[in-house]
Structure formats: C-alpha cells, structure tokens
Write a protein that binds this DNA or RNA. Sequence first.
DNA 1: TGAAAAATCATCCTAAAGTATGAAGGCAAA
DNA 2: TTTGCCTTCATACTTTAGGATGATTTTTCA
Lengths: 157, 157
Amino acid sequence: MPGSANFLTKNKSIILYGIFLALLLFLLKWLELHFLIMSHAFEIYAGAIAIIFTALGIWLALKLTKPKTVLIEKEIFTPRSETFILNEKELMRLNISKRELEVLQLMSEGLSNQEIASRLFVSLNTIKTHNARLFEKLEAKRRTQAIETAKKLNLIP
Amino acid sequence: MPGSANFLTKNKSIILYGIFLALLLFLLKWLELHFLIMSHAFEIYAGAIAIIFTALGIWLALKLTKPKTVLIEKEIFTPRSETFILNEKELMRLNISKRELEVLQLMSEGLSNQEIASRLFVSLNTIKTHNARLFEKLEAKRRTQAIETAKKLNLIP
DNA sequence: TGAAAAATCATCCTAAAGTATGAAGGCAAA
DNA sequence: TTTGCCTTCATACTTTAGGATGATTTTTCA
C-alpha cells in the first residue's frame, strides 16, 4: 500500500512539474518579445529564470523526498530464567549474607535441609540456623514463604 | 557538535552556490553573444538554464535538508507476573485435578497445610492426601520440590 | 444407573522442619 | 586489639510435613 501511494505521489509531482513547465514556456515566449527589445535587461531575464527554476528544483526535491520513517520494535522478553538480575539493594537492606543466600537458593530448588547441608559440606544444624536467620530477615514463617518473598524481591531466580 | 557541523555544511553549500552562480553568469554572458544572433535558439537557451537551475535547486535542497529519519522505538516489556499462561496440556498429562491445583497454588504462596485447610474449609487430613497425590504426580519428595517443578511446567505463576 | 474418578476424612507413625539457646572460631573494620 | 558480624556446630524440644492405608461421599460420564 505505501509503495503504490508513493508512486502516485511521485507521478503527480512529475505531472504537475510538466504542466508548470509548459506554462512557464508560454510565459517565456510572451516575455521574450518585451525583453528582446531592451537587450540590456537580458541578464535580469536569465536571473529570473535561474531563481524561479532553482526554487522549483528545491520545491521538487522537498516534495519528492519522503520522510524516511524507520520503525524499530524492540521486544524485550524476560523469560525469567535467562534474564535474572539479583536485587543487591534488597539484599543489603535485609542484611542477607552470601552463605544465607546460597542456602536460600538451594532451598528454592526443592532440596531438604539435609541435602543442603551435604551440598555445602556443613552440618544439618548449621543449615537450620541459617534458615532461622533467613526466616527472620524475610519475615517468613516457613521455607515456602521465604522462597515466595525472595522470588518477589528478585533475590533468587 | 552536530549543530555546528551542519552550519558549516550549510555555509559551504551557500558559498559553493555563489561561486557556481558567478561562473554561470560568465557562461551566460559568453553564450549570449552566440545565441543573440540566432534568436530562434533562444528557447533552447532558456530551457538549458531552466534545467540547469532546476538540477541545482534539487541538489541544494537535498544537500541542505538533513536526512529526515524518524526513529520510533517501541519497548515491549513482558513482566512475568502479567503473562502467566497455564499449561493445560501438562495439567492433563499429569492428571492433576482442579482441587489439587488449588492446593498446589496455595502451597506455593507459602501457606502451611493447616492454613490451606482453613482457606478451603476442609480438614488438615484432606490437604495431606491432596499433597501426597500431588507429590506422586509431580515426582516430588517435598512441597518445595513440587513447587519448583510446577513452576517450571507453568502450572502455577 | 452404575462404574470410575474426585474429594473428603481418619488414624497411626516417621521424618523433616522449625524454635530456642548457647557457644566457639575466623575475619575485617574501627 | 577489641568489637561486631559471619559461620559454624550442638542440644533439646515442638511443630509441621509426609507416608501408608482404609473408608465414605460426591461427581461425572458412558
């Protein structure tokens, strides 16, 4: 659609230009008689033609040059697995340590306390104390609640 | 920077235009002698001037007119909370009932079994049996694991 | 209408989670 | 060096979660 419309616009301009040219030629023919007599004024005549046609050229160029509209659609998908960005501000605000975050992470992956302990080479009790601190800081009663909150705050993916 | 550069470019063009004009006037003066004799060729002379100056006008316009490029940037954000689509195929495949999904949902929100029971006006034991079924179907050992799996399968937001 | 599936509830028991409290070693900043 | 924070571990206890099993009541669909 925009292609054919453009073509029409171009043709219109060309047709208009043709008509304008024809009219000008008639005008020139008429002017010729007057100006031929006083040949001193020939420079004025040529200058007039130059100015008129320069203006015509400018007008044509401006008319024919369509504003190039480039539409760039930036789609920013967040498939959450790819684009997780840790919210370090919240992390600092809540005073959650690296180790605690580590535990939280594993917790959210569905591991039991014992599994987390084994994974991190520490005792079950250590994990329990980490949990207690986490629940306190995240204002959670249960691990599931802690995970929910942490995900909302972008502390874990 | 681009402003002053543009200004320079414009001035250059105008200066060039002036020089070109001067040269053309000389050319005209010279041509005048030849064409005045054969006044029949005057139309050709005028036409040449018209064409030359039209071309000049077009060139000037194109030179002076900065490329009209309109950039439209559309940013389409997809914040995961807005775009949750339940994966009904997986739901059917795993034979998870409406009630079970409901329980799963509340579970993922961090509620305890007792809280879920109260919310749904059923007994704690009922929730436990639902859980057992869910864990079986989702191949999970714990509720946290069930939640993880369910989220991955887009069964819950 | 009658069988299958879904939802409900119960009991008993074990495992895991969570609470409370105390304590010790390490490390970095004041 | 001392203070504070992190990390670690322990013990004792309570609560919640989860497993196994059986049973009753709706609901649904052929």
